[in-house]
Amino acid sequence: MDSLRRSIGRVLALATITMACSAANWLPLESDGVHDPTAPGVKHLQQPAEALKVLPPDTTGNHVRWVEALEKGAINPRDRLFSKAPTQIREDDILLNLNGGMPIVRFPHRAHTLWLDCGNCHDHLFKAKAGANKFSMFAILQGEQCGVCHGAVSFPLTECSRCHSVARSGPSRVPAASPGGGAAPATR
Protein backbone atom coordinates (compact mmCIF):
# COMPACT_ATOMS: atom_id res chain seq x y z
CA MET A 1 0.00 0.00 0.00
CA ASP A 2 2.84 2.32 0.77
CA SER A 3 4.32 1.74 -2.61
CA LEU A 4 0.94 2.27 -4.23
CA ARG A 5 0.62 5.57 -2.42
CA ARG A 6 4.10 6.51 -3.53
CA SER A 7 3.36 5.64 -7.13
CA ILE A 8 0.16 7.65 -7.14
CA GLY A 9 2.07 10.49 -5.47
CA ARG A 10 4.63 10.41 -8.23
CA VAL A 11 2.01 10.61 -10.92
CA LEU A 12 0.30 13.53 -9.24
CA ALA A 13 3.62 15.26 -8.63
CA LEU A 14 4.54 14.88 -12.25
CA ALA A 15 1.20 16.33 -13.27
CA THR A 16 1.89 19.37 -11.10
CA ILE A 17 5.28 19.88 -12.68
CA THR A 18 3.94 19.46 -16.16
CA MET A 19 1.11 21.84 -15.49
CA ALA A 20 3.50 24.36 -14.05
CA CYS A 21 5.74 24.10 -17.10
CA SER A 22 3.13 24.19 -19.79
CA ALA A 23 1.74 27.66 -19.87
CA ALA A 24 1.48 27.21 -23.60
CA ASN A 25 0.00 23.83 -24.48
CA TRP A 26 2.43 22.80 -27.16
CA LEU A 27 6.13 23.57 -27.17
CA PRO A 28 7.82 24.39 -30.45
CA LEU A 29 9.85 21.40 -31.67
CA GLU A 30 13.07 23.39 -31.47
CA SER A 31 12.77 23.73 -27.69
CA ASP A 32 10.96 20.53 -26.71
CA GLY A 33 14.07 18.85 -25.39
CA VAL A 34 14.01 15.83 -27.72
CA HIS A 35 14.58 17.47 -31.09
CA ASP A 36 18.05 18.76 -31.87
CA PRO A 37 17.44 22.35 -32.98
CA THR A 38 20.53 22.16 -35.18
CA ALA A 39 19.31 19.06 -37.03
CA PRO A 40 18.58 20.06 -40.62
CA GLY A 41 15.24 18.24 -40.79
CA VAL A 42 13.55 19.90 -37.83
CA LYS A 43 12.42 23.01 -39.69
CA HIS A 44 10.53 20.83 -42.17
CA LEU A 45 8.44 19.11 -39.51
CA GLN A 46 4.95 20.18 -38.54
CA GLN A 47 4.63 22.00 -35.21
CA PRO A 48 2.26 20.18 -32.79
CA ALA A 49 0.36 23.41 -32.12
CA GLU A 50 -0.54 23.81 -35.77
CA ALA A 51 -2.13 20.39 -36.04
CA LEU A 52 -3.57 19.98 -32.56
CA LYS A 53 -5.09 23.35 -31.76
CA VAL A 54 -7.94 22.73 -34.21
CA LEU A 55 -9.00 19.48 -32.49
CA PRO A 56 -11.37 19.12 -29.48
CA PRO A 57 -9.35 20.50 -26.57
CA ASP A 58 -8.26 18.63 -23.48
CA THR A 59 -6.33 19.72 -20.40
CA THR A 60 -3.67 17.05 -20.46
CA GLY A 61 -1.73 14.59 -22.62
CA ASN A 62 -1.68 15.89 -26.19
CA HIS A 63 -4.36 18.42 -25.13
CA VAL A 64 -6.71 16.69 -27.52
CA ARG A 65 -9.84 14.64 -26.77
CA TRP A 66 -8.93 11.91 -29.20
CA VAL A 67 -12.09 9.83 -28.95
CA GLU A 68 -14.25 12.89 -29.51
CA ALA A 69 -12.05 13.99 -32.41
CA LEU A 70 -12.60 10.66 -34.09
CA GLU A 71 -16.31 10.28 -33.27
CA LYS A 72 -17.05 13.78 -34.57
CA GLY A 73 -15.01 13.30 -37.71
CA ALA A 74 -12.47 16.03 -36.90
CA ILE A 75 -9.91 13.37 -37.81
CA ASN A 76 -10.35 10.27 -39.92
CA PRO A 77 -7.36 8.02 -39.31
CA ARG A 78 -7.00 5.03 -41.62
CA ASP A 79 -7.85 1.74 -39.98
CA ARG A 80 -5.76 -0.52 -42.22
CA LEU A 81 -3.14 -0.51 -44.94
CA PHE A 82 -3.54 -3.79 -46.78
CA SER A 83 -5.66 -6.02 -44.59
CA LYS A 84 -9.15 -6.82 -45.85
CA ALA A 85 -10.50 -7.58 -42.40
CA PRO A 86 -13.35 -5.21 -41.54
CA THR A 87 -13.07 -3.10 -38.41
CA GLN A 88 -14.66 -4.82 -35.48
CA ILE A 89 -16.30 -2.46 -33.02
CA ARG A 90 -17.58 -3.73 -29.70
CA GLU A 91 -20.10 -1.54 -27.93
CA ASP A 92 -20.38 -2.83 -24.37
CA ASP A 93 -19.07 -1.18 -21.23
CA ILE A 94 -17.60 -3.24 -18.43
CA LEU A 95 -17.62 -2.15 -14.81
CA LEU A 96 -14.49 -3.08 -12.89
CA ASN A 97 -13.93 -3.07 -9.18
CA LEU A 98 -17.31 -3.13 -7.58
CA ASN A 99 -15.94 -3.40 -4.06
CA GLY A 100 -13.12 -0.91 -3.66
CA GLY A 101 -13.02 2.55 -2.14
CA MET A 102 -12.61 4.56 -5.34
CA PRO A 103 -15.48 5.19 -7.73
CA ILE A 104 -16.10 2.21 -10.01
CA VAL A 105 -14.03 1.92 -13.17
CA ARG A 106 -16.00 1.90 -16.40
CA PHE A 107 -14.14 0.31 -19.30
CA PRO A 108 -15.75 1.26 -22.63
CA HIS A 109 -15.08 -1.24 -25.43
CA ARG A 110 -16.30 1.18 -28.10
CA ALA A 111 -13.73 3.91 -27.48
CA HIS A 112 -11.03 1.27 -27.53
CA THR A 113 -12.09 -0.71 -30.57
CA LEU A 114 -12.36 2.49 -32.59
CA TRP A 115 -8.58 2.64 -32.29
CA LEU A 116 -7.43 -0.87 -31.50
CA ASP A 117 -7.81 -4.48 -32.56
CA CYS A 118 -9.18 -7.05 -30.14
CA GLY A 119 -5.75 -8.66 -30.36
CA ASN A 120 -4.05 -5.59 -28.91
CA CYS A 121 -5.59 -6.55 -25.57
CA HIS A 122 -7.00 -10.09 -25.80
CA ASP A 123 -5.79 -12.28 -24.40
CA HIS A 124 -2.23 -11.26 -23.63
CA LEU A 125 -3.30 -8.28 -21.49
CA PHE A 126 -6.85 -9.24 -20.48
CA LYS A 127 -8.82 -12.48 -20.66
CA ALA A 128 -12.05 -11.87 -22.58
CA LYS A 129 -14.33 -12.69 -19.71
CA ALA A 130 -15.79 -10.19 -17.29
CA GLY A 131 -14.32 -10.78 -13.87
CA ALA A 132 -11.58 -13.10 -15.06
CA ASN A 133 -8.75 -10.60 -14.59
CA LYS A 134 -7.14 -9.39 -11.43
CA PHE A 135 -6.58 -5.66 -11.83
CA SER A 136 -4.43 -3.54 -9.61
CA MET A 137 -3.79 0.18 -9.59
CA PHE A 138 -0.23 -0.57 -8.59
CA ALA A 139 0.36 -2.64 -11.72
CA ILE A 140 -1.33 0.05 -13.81
CA LEU A 141 0.99 2.71 -12.42
CA GLN A 142 3.89 0.42 -13.26
CA GLY A 143 2.82 0.49 -16.90
CA GLU A 144 1.01 -2.83 -16.99
CA GLN A 145 -2.65 -3.62 -17.75
CA CYS A 146 -4.43 -0.33 -18.57
CA GLY A 147 -1.08 1.40 -17.96
CA VAL A 148 0.46 -0.14 -21.07
CA CYS A 149 -1.27 2.63 -23.03
CA HIS A 150 -2.55 5.07 -20.41
CA GLY A 151 0.35 7.12 -19.14
CA ALA A 152 2.30 6.46 -22.34
CA VAL A 153 0.18 7.30 -25.40
CA SER A 154 -3.47 7.46 -24.29
CA PHE A 155 -4.70 9.95 -21.71
CA PRO A 156 -2.46 9.93 -18.65
CA LEU A 157 -3.04 8.24 -15.32
CA THR A 158 -3.40 11.57 -13.56
CA GLU A 159 -6.98 11.62 -14.88
CA CYS A 160 -8.35 9.35 -12.16
CA SER A 161 -11.97 10.20 -12.76
CA ARG A 162 -11.99 9.29 -16.44
CA CYS A 163 -11.57 5.65 -15.43
CA HIS A 164 -13.05 5.84 -11.95
CA SER A 165 -16.14 7.40 -13.42
CA VAL A 166 -19.13 5.64 -11.90
CA ALA A 167 -20.20 6.84 -8.47
CA ARG A 168 -21.08 4.25 -5.89
CA SER A 169 -24.66 4.64 -4.78
CA GLY A 170 -24.66 4.32 -1.06
CA PRO A 171 -23.80 1.27 0.97
CA SER A 172 -25.23 -1.26 -1.47
CA ARG A 173 -22.27 -0.68 -3.80
CA VAL A 174 -24.42 -1.13 -6.84
CA PRO A 175 -23.66 1.30 -9.67
CA ALA A 176 -25.94 4.30 -9.57
CA ALA A 177 -27.17 3.98 -13.12
CA SER A 178 -26.32 2.04 -16.19
CA PRO A 179 -23.55 4.10 -17.78
CA GLY A 180 -24.44 5.55 -21.13
CA GLY A 181 -23.47 4.17 -24.52
CA GLY A 182 -23.72 0.64 -25.78
CA ALA A 183 -25.32 -2.40 -24.29
CA ALA A 184 -26.02 -2.96 -20.65
CA PRO A 185 -22.73 -3.17 -18.79
CA ALA A 186 -21.42 -6.47 -17.62
CA THR A 187 -20.83 -6.46 -13.91
CA ARG A 188 -18.95 -8.70 -11.64
Binding site: V11, T18, V34, A39, L141, G143, G147, G151, A152, T158
Partner: peptide, 22 residues
Protein backbone atom coordinates in the same frame (compact mmCIF):
# COMPACT_ATOMS: atom_id res chain seq x y z
CA UNK B 1 16.99 14.24 -41.97
CA UNK B 2 13.27 14.04 -41.30
CA UNK B 3 13.53 11.00 -39.02
CA UNK B 4 16.98 11.43 -37.51
CA UNK B 5 16.21 14.68 -35.67
CA UNK B 6 16.86 13.67 -32.05
CA UNK B 7 19.20 15.35 -29.59
CA UNK B 8 22.45 13.44 -29.34
CA UNK B 9 22.71 11.46 -26.13
CA UNK B 10 18.99 10.83 -25.61
CA UNK B 11 18.22 7.26 -24.57
CA UNK B 12 15.40 5.29 -26.23
CA UNK B 13 12.15 5.88 -24.44
CA UNK B 14 8.74 7.43 -24.39
CA UNK B 15 8.78 11.14 -23.62
CA UNK B 16 6.36 13.92 -22.89
CA UNK B 17 5.65 13.56 -19.20
CA UNK B 18 3.04 11.70 -17.16
CA UNK B 19 4.98 8.56 -17.79
CA UNK B 20 4.48 5.60 -15.56
CA UNK B 21 7.17 3.47 -14.07
CA UNK B 22 6.33 1.20 -16.92
Amino acid sequence: DLCHTGKPGLPSGIYGGHETGG
